[in-house]
Write a protein that binds this DNA or RNA. Structure first.
Length: 537
RNA sequence: GGGCCCGUAGCUCAGCGGUAGAGCAGGGGACUUUUAAUCCUCUGGUCCUGGGUUCGAAUCCCAGCGGGCCCA
């Protein structure tokens, strides 16, 4: 059982052309956890295509849904805009977009794009309704209103009054959709009332009259709209988040309506879990949005895909980057899978689908996975050290480690990782990952130095006189000097390095000492070596 | 009150009917040059609990308990 067999199994279980769909209401920003669904859809699409099935990936923007998040509006806009279709609410961030919906949808479309998720088509419900494509579904829903009410009652235990009709008319007077109630379908028009008190979060204007609910004048309620999308686009596969999978919840309702009202078998479904941060679901409204946003800036796209791809969809992913090594480990595991995919020998067992995991983690679906897997990737932990040592040329160092110049792609990857490392050090890294040079005073821990170690430090200072031509010029030279002087004093390498770390950073281990010393001000180094070497034991 | 998912090593997770696994963490060792690197090695699990099915159960079924998300 490979870890990503869920995608291959799904692909193997269907025949013929496939239409994969997802949709989202653009009511605010997306957080990292909500990207799991789109990644899963993308992976399914790739698996279907790998099997040779003609597959279309659709992504819908449900932008005629009513505005109901007043936190994102200015106070004077709340009364005016709450309840209007998102597509008709002005962009709160000035005039960079045509509407509130376009602004926030644009953000998540850009995010998807950055993750290599490229739906064949984005459709906007605010564009679809005016074309009349939804009209047959609206008419059917109205003609079968008793069946709709019965389905709601039976599936969701929601009892609508007998005059209730499954349509949301946009008020011709105030433009709100969340405040209207329709009744008396006569085959061409419905009677509409825009009520001040239908919902608590928005207030209607009180208008009433007859409206023909077609051509964009009205929208279907969410459950019916979802079912209508399945019919309109011929959707065959649509997983959804587990939040919709509850008995009598959205999915159940829409499936019942699809069967009973639109007379179509609903698409293949499975529910996927979320991404928890520190044991809690990510939520902008619960104050975890900031963490979510930061994670996106620390974990690059390939590793983010990897995070979602390597776990089965029905398992919760626990990800707790705060003060932990979760992020470095994510990179390390990615690199291990990459190395294995490239055919290199790797420690430990591998998930049997590791080549798929790697391939599905790549942004470019058509990339040569073998070539990509073979690329040089500097270990995250190593970069975290280099980034903290002054004066280190990480690119040169990486090239030296690789043994040949970096390719353009590898250089770009290095830059990506360096940026990630810096953000990680700022936002998440545990204290032990942070390197602090004790500049002002010798660390208290240096009291643990024994006589041999002190003698070694003093001798090292003497061997590297300030200002002279033979001052160690670089990390290699320092490293050589350290080994030579240690040997003279009969000190093994471990004790010698321990002494240096204690004297400079107050720990018994640290980054490669030669480069550490080479990166520091030379006079300071000599002074510290003498001080540590001279302190009475 | 109801639904769904998950409880496997300290942590994150594989395994999903045939002798309990990996990574990381932890212990020990090697290293005259990647010293927070690398390599070797070890430790560590009543597979949540209790029943049942089976020649055989972490795996299937039932019931609890615990956690999470959602719907009421």
């Amino acid at each position: 059982m490979a870890t990503v067999d869920w995608a291959d199994e799904l692909a193997a279980s269907v025949e013929g052309p496939q239409v994969v769909n997802d949709s989202k209401t653009p009511s605010g920003t997306v957080h990292v956890g909500s990207l799991r669904g789109p990644v899963i859809l993308d992976v399914i699409t790739r698996a279907l295509r790998a099997r040779g099935l003609e597959t279309t990936l659709l992504y819908g923007v449900d932008d005629l849904d009513p505005m109901d998040a007043q936190a994102l509006l200015s106070p004077d806009a709340i009364e005016r805009e709450m309840g209007r279709p998102l597509a008709h609410v002005p962009d709160p961030h000035g005039d960079c977009h045509a509407s509130y919906a376009r602004h926030f949808a644009g953000i998540f479309i850009d995010t998807f794009d950055g993750l290599g998720i490229r739906p064949d088509r984005y459709y906007w419900m605010s564009d679809i309704y005016p074309t009349g494509q939804m009209d047959p579904f609206i008419k059917t829903a109205l003609d079968k209103a008793p069946i709709v009410r019965e389905a709601y009652r039976r599936v969701a235990n929601v009892r609508h009054p007998d005059h209730w009709l499954p349509v949301g008319v946009i008020c011709p007077s105030c433009g709100k959709v969340g405040t209207t109630i329709a009744s008396d379908w006569d085959g061409a028009t419905v009677y509409v009332e825009c009520k001040p008190d239908l919902v608590v979060w928005a207030h209607g204007c009180g208008w009433s009259g007859r409206v023909a609910p077609f051509g964009g004048a009205a929208k279907l309620p969410w459950n019916l709209e979802w079912a209508a999308q399945w019919s309109l686009f011929g959707v065959t596969i649509e997983p959804n988040g587990k939040d919709l999978a509850t008995a009598g919840g959205s999915r159940d309702r829409s499936e019942a309506i699809s069967r009973e009202v639109f007379e179509r078998e609903p698409p293949l479904n499975f529910a996927y879990e979320f991404l928890n941060i520190g044991g809690k679901k990510m939520s902008t409204s619960k104050g975890r949005g900031a963490a979510a946003h930061t994670i996106g800036s620390v974990v690059p796209p390939e590793q983010l895909r990897f995070l979602f791809v390597r776990n089965r969809p029905e398992t919760v992913i626990e990800f707790d980057p705060e003060g932990t090594d979760a992020i470095p480990r994510l990179f390390d595991e990615f690199d291990r899978i990459a190395a294995a995919t490239a055919g290199r020998e790797v420690r430990g067992e591998l998930p049997s689908g590791h080549e798929n995991i790697f391939r599905f983690s790549l942004l470019d679906a058509k990339a040569d996975a073998q070539a990509a897997a073979g690329a040089f990737r500097p270990p995250f932990g190593h970069l975290a050290l280099l980034a903290q040592i002054p004066g280190v040329d990480a690119a040169a160092k990486a090239g030296a480690e690789k043994g040949s110049p970096l390719t353009a792609a590898e250089a770009a990857e290095l830059e990506t990782r360096l940026a990630a490392v810096r953000r990680w050090l700022e936002a998440y890294a545990p204290d032990k990952a942070r390197l602090e040079i004790h500049r002002d005073a010798i660390p208290a821990e240096a009291a643990a130095l024994d006589g041999n170690q002190r003698a070694f430090l003093a001798a090292l200072a003497a061997a590297a006189p300030a200002g002279s031509a033979d001052k160690p010029a670089n990390g290699d030279a320092w490293q050589a000097a350290i080994f030579a002087v240690a040997a003279d004093h009969g000190l093994d390498a471990r004790a010698a390095f321990n002494a240096l770390y204690l004297a400079f950073i107050g720990r018994t281990s640290g980054p490669r000492a030669g480069w550490l010393l080479a990166g520091l001000d030379h006079d300071f180094v000599l002074q510290r070596l003498r001080t540590a070497g001279a302190t009475a034991a």
